[in-house]
Design a protein around this nucleic acid. Structure first.
Length: 279
DNA sequence: AAGGCGGGGGC
DNA sequence: GCCCCAGCCTT
């Protein structure tokens, strides 16, 4: 089988998260806690819950108030109530086993489209269409060439993403999600570490822009004042990441006039805008 | 298709 | 201060 650069990257770089090797109930607890809450903050609370309530029936046997209190300060406490209600439904209607089918999962309170797919995929290895914010952002960039996905997935997006799912869809979902979380991040993505940077549509379109290019675009001017701001920015960022502009700035062999000319050429190339030289 | 719902960390 | 985070549910 052909090696997949994404799966290869995943094998080498994945985090050792406790819900990667646990019961379906453990996966379900993690998915509820991870709804709009970062991994870092979920970790201790997940251990606390899975130790205290090892199966759905255990949680269902506790009072709702206990669940709410144990939720602590994770945020969106309604999730604790819904998880408690889901546990009762699982104990009562599903023989204390977290359902495997999307249809059954969706009957549980607090289980939406994403969470159902995530449980089916991560707990049972099903090739479900998992579309969390990490996966959606990764594909928005690498495939569509745009920085961010729409607020909620459209039917078109669902259809196009479903076509991409390979044989082992569960592993693929975990890998792309991790890639979005660790490399293709919302702010300051680490493109140099990305296994698909060479075929990324967003990158091919010239993104992400460097800070200096973003600023120069924001200035959008061609007059002396804009150039002054640019030069000031370069002075203030001497220790910043090495950019072409930074190198030019430190090239002592260039005369002031020639330096400005080089900077202007670079900006035109990088931004597509026209910059006139300030004398 | 919007808007509400929590709280904490990063810049 | 604003943005972001493995979303869900009700208008």
């Amino acid at each position: 089988m052909k090696p997949d650069p994404i799966l290869d990257w995943f094998e080498k770089n994945k985090r050792d998260l406790p819900w990667r090797n646990t019961s379906p109930w453990g996966v379900m607890i993690s998915e509820f806690m991870l709804q709009q809450t970062p991994v870092k903050r979920v970790l201790p609370k997940w251990h606390e819950w899975i130790d205290r309530w090892p199966t759905p029936a255990d949680l269902a046997a506790s009072k709702k108030s206990e669940a709410i209190h144990a939720w602590g300060r994770l945020g969106y406490p309604r999730r604790a109530i819904r998880l408690h209600e889901s546990a009762a439904a699982i104990a009562d209607k599903f023989e204390n086993q977290v359902p495997r089918s999307l249809e059954d999962l969706r009957t549980l309170p607090g289980v939406g489209e994403y969470t159902a797919a995530a449980i089916a995929s991560f707990a049972y290895g099903e090739s479900a269409l998992v579309m969390d914010i990490n996966i959606r952002r990764f594909f928005a960039r690498s495939i569509d060439g745009i920085e961010s996905p729409t607020p909620s997935p459209s039917q078109i997006e669902r259809r196009l993403r479903a076509e991409l799912i390979p044989q082992d869809g569960a592993l693929w979902a975990a890998a792309t999600m991790e890639l979005g979380a660790l490399v293709c991040t919302a702010r300051t993505p680490l493109c140099d570490q990305c296994p698909v940077k060479k075929i990324c549509a967003w990158r091919a379109a010239g993104y992400p822009k460097s800070e200096i290019v973003k600023k120069s675009q924001a200035w959008a001017g061609t007059d002396r004042q804009c150039r002054g701001l640019m030069v000031q920015h370069l002075r203030e960022n001497k220790s910043a990441t090495q950019s072409v502009l930074y190198k030019l700035w430190h090239d002592k062999d260039q005369s002031e006039r020639a330096l400005k000319s080089l900077i202007a050429d670079h900006l035109i190339e990088a931004t597509g805008n026209k910059y006139k030289l300030a004398d």
